[in-house]
Amino acid sequence: MPPSSITTTDNPCRALPASLRLAITLAVILLASLIPLEHWPAHGLLLVVVFVGLSFAGVTLGYLIRRLALFLPMLFMFGLTVPLTQWDKAAAWSWMLALWIRCTTSFLAGLWLIHVLPFPELLATLLRWRCPTLLIAMLSFMYRYIFILWDELARLRHARDARDFGHGSLKMKWVGNAQLIGLLLLRAMERAERTHHAMLSRGWDGSIRFLDSDRGTSR
């Protein structure tokens, strides 16, 4: 499901200009990166501000817990690699704690952004900020076709389960998953080539245009 479909229409944060919403998110991430760990009350205050913003954005506690349950274990395992690769253990544990706090704050700020700024508006804002057109085009196509590829992967899984009834050894499952990834890559490349030819036949010149929600014009 696209993040923009989760955002409610009565979200008061969406009354802000798109550029301001993006600037607020970047400012929170920058502050979380620059505040020293010794100033932990400032980190706590920043987290409170982010949580208040999430509540205004209509993010429920259950949704937030589910997202953190996916993010925090990976962050925890990644943070544990810091003390294992440093000689100064005391400083390493401090760096690890700072990494956990900063990454969690940045993740929550990004979660707020996707609930208050739909992805097409984000791309239009980046275009106004003079970001490289190639990068915006790549993000636009990724957002458009990631859901199609996800549906394609679901069909491949159903086809595999229909052949082995979901049974098999662990080795067979690993081999089957590797084959699914390879087949999905081939289908993605074929679809990309067909899409590229179709766009060229319709006169695509490499320019990315969005409806400017702040001005009501096409850019």
Rank of each mutant, 00 (worst) to 15 (best):
L113G: 07
L30I: 05
H196D: 06
R66H: 03
A137E: 10
Y145A: 07
I114S: 15
I6Y: 15
R128H: 14
V116W: 00
H197A: 09
M199D: 04
L68I: 07
R187I: 09
L111Y: 15
R144V: 14
E121M: 07
I35K: 08
G203F: 02
L61A: 14
K173Q: 13
F119M: 08
A98R: 04
T9H: 12
G110V: 02
I208H: 03
P83K: 04
W87G: 13
V175Y: 05
P41W: 09
A23E: 03
S207A: 12
S55N: 06
W40D: 04
L34K: 14
G44T: 12
T85Y: 06
A90E: 15
L170P: 02
G53Q: 06
I136T: 05
E38N: 03
H115Q: 15
S19L: 09
L156S: 10
R144C: 14
L54T: 05
W40H: 05
F165I: 10
P17C: 01
A15P: 00
T105D: 01
L122T: 02
I101G: 01
G62M: 06
I114D: 10
N177W: 05
F51T: 11
E152N: 08
L47C: 07
L34R: 14
R157F: 08
S5G: 05
H196Y: 09
L54V: 06
R144F: 12
